[in-house]
């Protein structure tokens, strides 16, 4: 019996970290843009989303630390794990590129994130349900923001349309990973706790398609969706993200900041 409980706890920990990693890495990517946005108002808006996502990651890492209950803190997970232990989807670690790429990546993530949180409000794990209820308010705003910008840029000038189509063509193969369950999402011990990501796929895609249509963007067919992030197999970009993220703690271990 004790063993079953601890197995479940280990699965829950892994699941919570997967959620946190998505939020943190996208928040970190967006934070790179702070001070470099195309216009001050959008600089502020993108930074806001970054703050929300890192804030969400922080709550989830705190929960992870409580689940482990061995004195770890919220910072141990982002600052002390190496590449293969991170479970975020590949989409969120892709470079910002031009503003069209940033917006497209955001929109794809928001389509997933919003419906995922919506489902998570019904999680059998009370804490996850609470976290979802809190963060879905922000995710609702993010989805609205990125949808509006996909439309504005897709239906703006010829140049902006071409840039959005370019971003869509290049990034679409990273969209589906979010809806392909990882081992941990399929873990039987998390039945009723983890969101069944296959079940949110239809709603997320419906929203995605609707917005792309309004934006006059054509969704290309994807033969081989890219995946692996959830199992710790990342893109080559990822090591560099960690090099920056963890630089101070690696250079001066065991210090308070």
């Amino acid at each position: 019996m004790g063993e079953i409980i601890s197995l479940k706890r280990e699965s829950l920990l892994k699941y919570v970290l997967q959620l946190a990693d998505n939020a943190l890495i996208l928040g970190q990517r967006l934070a790179e843009l702070c001070g470099h946005g195309p216009i001050l108002e959008q600089d502020i808006a993108i930074t806001n989303i970054s703050l929300d996502l890192i804030g969400e990651a922080r709550i989830l890492y705190q929960y992870a630390a409580e689940i482990e209950g061995n004195g770890k803190t919220e910072d141990d997970y982002p600052y002390k794990r190496d590449v293969r232990d991170w479970q975020n989807i590949l989409l969120v670690e892709l470079p910002n590129g031009h503003f069209g790429y940033t917006i497209m990546r955001q929109f794809m993530f928001d389509c997933y994130h919003y419906y995922h949180l919506k489902a998570m409000t019904n999680s059998g794990d009370e804490r996850l349900a609470q976290i979802a209820a809190k963060t879905i308010k922000e995710a609702t705003y993010h989805l609205k923001y990125s949808s509006e910008w996909v439309i504005r840029l897709g239906d703006g000038t010829q140049e902006s349309h071409d840039k959005m189509q370019e971003a869509l063509n290049d990034r679409i193969r990273f969209f589906d990973e979010a809806f392909i369950p990882s081992k941990i999402e399929n873990d039987k011990s998390l039945n009723g706790v983890a969101v069944d990501c296959t079940k949110i796929k239809a709603s997320a895609w419906a929203k995605f398609t609707e917005v792309c249509q309004t934006a006059n963007l054509e969704i290309p067919e994807v033969k081989f969706p890219q995946k692996g992030g959830k199992d710790g197999v990342h893109t080559e970009h990822f090591g560099f993200i960690l090099a920056e993220l963890q630089f101070v703690q690696k250079s001066y271990p065991d210090s308070n900041w």
């Binding site: 216009i39 959008q42 031009h98 840029l153 703006g156 000038t157 902006s160």
Partner: peptide, 9 residues
Amino acid sequence: EGQWVRDAA
């Protein structure tokens, strides 16, 4: 680099 974004908006 933001010019096209502002133009589009």
